[in-house]
Design a protein around this nucleic acid. Structure first.
Lengths: 165, 165
DNA sequence: CTATAATTGAAAATGAATTTCAATTTCATT
DNA sequence: AATGAAATTGAAATTCATTTTCAATTATAG
């Protein structure tokens, strides 16, 4: 469904990878969980991605590195990553929950074409400011936000000209 | 899950109800569908709601008015309402798709507590302006947006003080 | 090394969303 | 008002992502 993506997502440096690992394993310690190879592999694979991944999509990538890792483990690890803020859920209009990594990533947002599913990533510092403001106003400890704009992209508008009004 | 809601949603006037019906039935005509009592009842029930409703929640309300209307019909009608812009999907963190009506409703947004699910509705004209701007920039015909801020509400912050850091 | 507790992953369960299909209803045309 | 083609309805079945279960395995503190 996703056809094109415009963003400015840089691949992770070895440095930032280590940092992310540290965050993850501190989180595991904190909640009394253990360090495993599977979790390492899954975190590494996840950080290398650029796209918004469903659990299944990440599972397929992970399997390339270690075919013995099961879907369930990927699923559970993704939840752990979300818990410690390294990943966040993005609700997609196709009804599938996808995750993206949030580490070393400035706040960003998506414009999604409701016809073809193409998504464009954009950045608006104002939105982050609004998050803070609204949080203050309602006494919420605001941690994150979703902002998606839906519309019809240029290509799809052109295509739908065949269909008369 | 939803415990409290703060908004300023006025009940629909007879006038606006009629207008919404007109929009709906024009849409049906356009795509070659028919006018039925069930669809009338479902639209009416939907417009009277204040909350974000899952299909099942709306189904329960509809059933009070006409116990013979089935879940499937509510489900399908809700899709039709979304098609013609009278309803829109709001993805909730509990993974359930909910709908809210968009008719005569100024653009609004939600702040959701990730602990208790409480939601506060807020307005930010800036967000609408951003939608327009971004649409122009990427040549999208922007039709709507979702904006949710997630965080922890005051009550839940107090409660979680029992749990030491 | 041992004991304890967490992890793993295949399989089963769950549950919302969607489709199927036979009976019923709508509505444009007589 | 009657006709018939096409859409609608709703119960049941299906689909499919997500989540849970559980027995075997593995990590780690002592």
């Amino acid at each position: 469904m996703l056809q094109k993506r415009i963003d400015d997502h840089a691949p992770p440096t070895r440095e930032s990878m280590r940092e992310a690992q540290e965050i993850f394993y501190k989180h595991l310690k904190r909640v009394g969980l253990k360090h495993t190879d599977q979790r390492d592999t899954i975190l590494g694979t996840f950080l290398e991605t650029r796209d918004h991944l469903s659990t299944d999509e990440l599972f397929r990538l992970v399997r390339k590195k270690d075919s013995k890792i099961g879907f369930t483990t990927v699923y559970r690890t993704l939840k752990l990553l979300a818990e410690c803020g390294l990943a966040s859920m993005v609700p997609f209009p196709d009804g599938m929950t996808r995750y993206e990594h949030q580490f070393n990533r400035r706040s960003h947002h998506h414009m999604v074409c409701t016809e073809c599913g193409a998504s464009v990533e954009f950045f608006s510092p104002e939105v982050t400011r609004i998050e803070e403001e609204i949080g203050r106003k309602y006494h919420f400890d605001a941690t994150r936000h979703n902002f998606q704009i839906y519309g019809v992209c240029e290509d799809c508008r052109k295509k739908s000209n065949r269909r008369p009004a």
